[in-house]
Amino acid sequence: MLGQLLDIMEDELINFDILFGEKVKDETARNIPSIDQHKPPFEIVEKCRRFLVEKGITCHSHDFGLSCSAPKLVIEKVFQTKLIKNSESSYLDYWRFSNSPKIPDEILQDISQITFPPPPELF
């Protein structure tokens, strides 16, 4: 138990974003006139935030979802799958789940996607 706690403490913090509601695949459909349609109800965001905070995940809520961070082991435990870091130079593959994550039942209906933002390039 203590060993696992020490592993978590030494683990790298990983950032991820959570979006709610229907996934819109067409980027041109996301625009300023339609922006309010992408804002989920506050109660849903808050419910998920509380659930994830209880699981040890740091969450910052905003109009469109949650920006989260947690040690790798915590994320893997909550979503019951492994995280893989392929290459630091290829940002499409920076972090990803090895298999489909199992989203806990309590928030399964609410979450539409979980993404891991890699660091951008500084121009």
Binding site: L19, E27, I35, Q113, T115, F116, P118, E121, L122, F123
Partner: peptide, 21 residues
């Protein structure tokens, strides 16, 4: 800063949707 991904025959990866919004 940014991501060099808006290349021919590609579409926006999911991880950029929160930033786009």
């Amino acid at each position: 800063w940014g991501y060099s991904l808006d290349k021919p025959e590609t579409s926006m990866p999911n991880f950029l949707i929160p930033l786009h919004l």
